[in-house]
Computed example of a mutant assay.
Amino acid sequence: MKTKHLRALGLLIVTGLFILAWIFPIFWSVLNSFKNEQDVLAYPPKLFFVPTLSAYRSVLFGPQSILPNLWSSFVISAGTTILTMAIAIPAAYALARLRVPGSRWAGFYVLATQMLPPVGIIIPYFLILRNIGWMDTYQGIILIYLSFSLPFAIWLMVSYFEDIPFEMEEAAAVDGASRLTTLRRIILPQVQGGIAVTIVFVFLNAWNEFLFAVVLSGNTVRPVTIAMFNFVSVEQTLWTQLAAVSVIAMLPVVILGVLAQKHIVKGLTVGAVKGGGRR
């Protein structure tokens, strides 16, 4: 019994250390966003100080306001998420349910695209967008984001569709329901959790993406991840404003996670009880 308690205590300590390592950077960014520049650069670091909102006022309403950048990030992320889910849901259903010739190879291709290093394909993407005149445009960046978010979404959604018993579709077919009606009224309500998980991951990846955005965007379309560099220069780094931007950039993702929390938990645990599977 003593060994069991020691093992549980050790696991608790290790888990606590991992959580602390994850929380500390966020806590420190929030803390620095309420400081002034002198307090941020003070050594040893100040934990007790007079909080100020000057950094938030500067990044939201100052000459380097990030409001247009937040709008760009929202349009790109929302557009990528909507298009990805509109294509991924029927594609994943087809791969999971229909006996389409070459479906196994299609599934392998979807998974293989996730293994490509982004650095290796960014130059072809740049040349393609430049040749069709879509550089520094919403449609261009959304198209590129769609190319790597769609395989991920399909791969994730297939596993949820495969957990739905075939008997549910067979019963609907006996009642005269078409496959499309069955998908819309019976299957999709059963995979709401999986859809919520996929939406959150796709939105999160698009919102936080940096490498493609820094190469393919410009002055017209400039996501918030790129706008952070407005506060970093050779002469100095505006740490308080940079911290404020990072906190603001985290808020939409946090809000989305909180709103979809119920469905996310359901989606992540849906595989615990297997359904019919592929026949």
Rank of each mutant, 00 (worst) to 15 (best):
H5P: 00
A21M: 14
A21K: 06
W22N: 14
S29T: 15
V30Q: 08
L31Y: 03
L31T: 13
K35H: 05
K35N: 04
V40A: 09
A42V: 07
P45V: 02
K46Q: 08
L47Y: 14
V50T: 15
T52W: 06
T52V: 03
S58C: 00
S58R: 11
S65T: 11
I66C: 02
L67C: 08
P68Q: 05
L70V: 09
L70C: 11
S73V: 05
A78Y: 12
A78Q: 09
G79T: 11
G79L: 05
A88S: 15
I89Q: 12
I89C: 12
I89Y: 12
P90G: 12
Y93M: 14
P101F: 11
S103N: 15
P117T: 10
I122F: 08
I123C: 13
P124N: 12
L127G: 02
R130H: 13
R130V: 05
T137R: 11
I142V: 15
L143K: 09
L146S: 00
L150R: 04
A153R: 01
V158W: 02
Y160V: 04
F161V: 02
F161S: 00
E162F: 06
D163H: 09
V174N: 09
D175C: 03
R185D: 07
L188W: 05
Q190F: 03
V202S: 00
L204W: 05
W207T: 01
V214D: 01
R222M: 13
P223A: 03
A227V: 03
M228N: 10
S233C: 06
V234R: 15
A244C: 08
V247K: 12
L251I: 15
L256S: 13
V265E: 13
G267Q: 09
A272V: 15
R278I: 12
R279T: 14
